[in-house]
Design a protein around this nucleic acid. Structure first.
Lengths: 357, 357
DNA sequence: CTGAAAGCGCTTACAG
DNA sequence: CTGAAAGCGCTTACAG
């Protein structure tokens, strides 16, 4: 009959996963000392630390994050809420966040939130409400007040990248200025009949990214003493290639007067528009100038004039801010240059040219 | 002087996060019973369960996953290792995985692994070695034997989607057949001067996705009694739009005889090639037929003939397999139709046409 | 069907 | 600088 302790008696048989007690035993110290040596918290004699580290390496010890977070309350895990993974801006941001987090020794738990799906409540009320993430980075999500306060109540810092949210740290372009800049570029080229392909609900959500870009367009126009020739000259569409294509056909296929230039809310929309123009036999830039926003990977090859931003860098920055909010930074001020707009750059290529006289 | 228990004496002050003991107290049962009622494991009287659930709802109790996994050994978290997020196939797969995992109540921890970066070892030796994920889904990663055995040793099932790996469950297209099919489509149209834009190292890695597609091309050609006219007619490039563009300029800008048709390893490569042809004044499909693989979101609008696959569905399937390997499924056989190739479909559009006579 | 107790693997006051 | 003990918040045999 197997006696209690039989298993231990087998001697050499390695346990599935070594625990800190195994390290402690091998190094001849207490679990407390082993823990201190390995985590770096508290004082340990240099020689002791060496012994513990050697023991840990020998048996391939890796601390259980679950056990540690149970007592520290820190998970070393950040939740990222993002509506798309497969659109250029979002993909780049996500890669930037992932890289920075990995470097800092953090995990990234991904919540790919469809804009208005029922999954949204489930993510906020269940997944994020548990004690599994230390903080949340929300990319391009318009956070409702109750969503922010729910995270607040659980002491989870939130950093927003784009999107709208009051009461949370926010990193974003100055989208109003960007919209103006894009429009002004077309105005400087002598265009007056300028249309705008805006993001969904840009008119209804003036504070959203797409809403600000639309307002920037309108402001630049009115500053030049102009206005959209027609209400139909602001077309709202999904910020995708197909979205831009459909909107482009609508805008350019119109029987009335055609615009000589279009400011597209994103490069992907601009690409769709270029395709639509091509199909309709409208030459770019001869018959139509197009400017976008993003600095998409394809922009150079497509010859698209655009306002570049650095989404990957923005992701990195979001991580920096979140780590500071968690007290990991060495700086006192959690928000570096809080509110300072992110860098952008107008890159002129072959999709824009002077207006025909 | 504050006495011990003072805090509890304050009565109404809600604790930061309610624990199961709070639920138990409120419902008038033991922690054990509360746990059984909430997790559904073990028998609990219907009336008791109701009381416990009501108590939990009242104080907003949500179980700590860390504490639970510490004792169950299950984290309800899956690690996803993926080289890119921002390429169409990978983005779609990731969204499919995420959606399926969320539905099953699992978290997704993302490891965005650059192909050969130093981060790779760190991910496998540290991040994945801890007890934070129950299993791993590797998308488009060529797993080394030691990487698989390392996960094996820690009892972490691995499911591969594409990529190469021996000793792990694998879901993949029959890329050889797909390469043949694409090439045969061009052959049937009467083309004989057919080139191939292959993925990186397709020649050196015959078992990789890109290697199999290349072999499919060669087999179809030789079955038709043909061979690439020139060694330069298999161009290896990054499977991206810029990759296809550069390779296209190299292939088409050549002074020698030009191909009349090209099989591009992916749709993104095909788009780059289309752009290169456009720049060189080569008409598609008049002067050049192009077929791709993927069924990219842009394919329809670009008029690209392609072989469609369903990456999002593949992601969902990977989750299904992984959950079965974890014993969550209701079926005995962990691998549904193990090895059965995934569905594909040739969609003919305007980028291919009969060879000029 | 239910409860008291032990324990998952750590870290952290508290002493020394 | 180090150790013994308590405890983080759960779940699970073991009894009853």
């Amino acid at each position: 009959m197997a006696a209690i302790g039989d298993d231990a008696g087998r001697g050499g048989a390695p346990k599935a996963t070594p625990a800190i007690s195994d390290v402690a035993r091998l190094a001849g110290v207490s679990k407390a000392t082993a823990s201190r040596a390995l985590t770096g918290r508290g004082h340990v004699a240099a020689e002791t630390r060496r012994r513990v580290e050697a023991a840990a390496a020998e048996i391939g010890y890796i601390a259980s994050p679950d056990a540690a977070s149970l007592v520290t309350g820190r998970t070393k895990n950040i939740g990222v809420v993002i509506p798309f993974v497969n659109r250029w801006f979002f993909g780049e941001v996500l890669e930037g966040i992932e890289r920075a987090l990995l470097t800092a020794g953090y995990d990234l738990t991904l919540y790919n939130l469809s804009p208005h799906g029922p999954a949204r409540d489930r993510v906020f009320d269940f997944f994020l409400a548990r004690k599994r993430v230390d903080a949340v980075i929300a990319v391009g999500v318009d956070l409702a007040p109750h969503e922010i306060s729910s995270l607040d109540r659980r002491d989870k810092p939130v950093v927003c990248l784009g999107g709208t949210a009051v009461g949370a740290a926010r990193i974003a372009l100055d989208d109003l200025a960007v919209g103006q800049l894009a429009t002004e570029h077309l105005l400087h080229l002598g265009h007056t009949r300028i249309a705008h392909l805006a993001g969904p609900n840009a008119g209804a959500l003036p504070n959203s990214v797409q809403g600000q870009r639309r307002l920037g367009y309108l402001e630049a126009m009115s500053a030049a003493g102009l206005a959209p020739v027609d209400d139909d000259w602001i077309v709202e569409c999904e910020m995708t290639f197909p979205g831009g294509y459909d909107a482009g056909r609508q805008l350019l296929g119109h029987p009335g007067q055609r615009p000589s230039a279009v400011f597209a809310a994103t490069d992907e929309v601009a690409f769709g528009l270029m395709r639509a123009a091509d199909r309709l036999g409208i030459a770019v830039p001869g018959d139509l100038s197009i400017v976008g926003i993003d600095g998409h990977e394809y922009a150079e090859m497509m010859g698209l004039t655009t306002i570049e931003q650095q989404p990957e860098e923005q992701g990195r920055l979001a991580v920096e801010v979140v780590l500071r909010l968690l007290g990991e930074g060495d700086v006192a001020d959690p928000l570096p240059d809080s509110g300072a707009p992110l860098a952008t750059r107008l890159v002129v290529r072959s999709s824009t040219t002077s207006a025909a006289r």
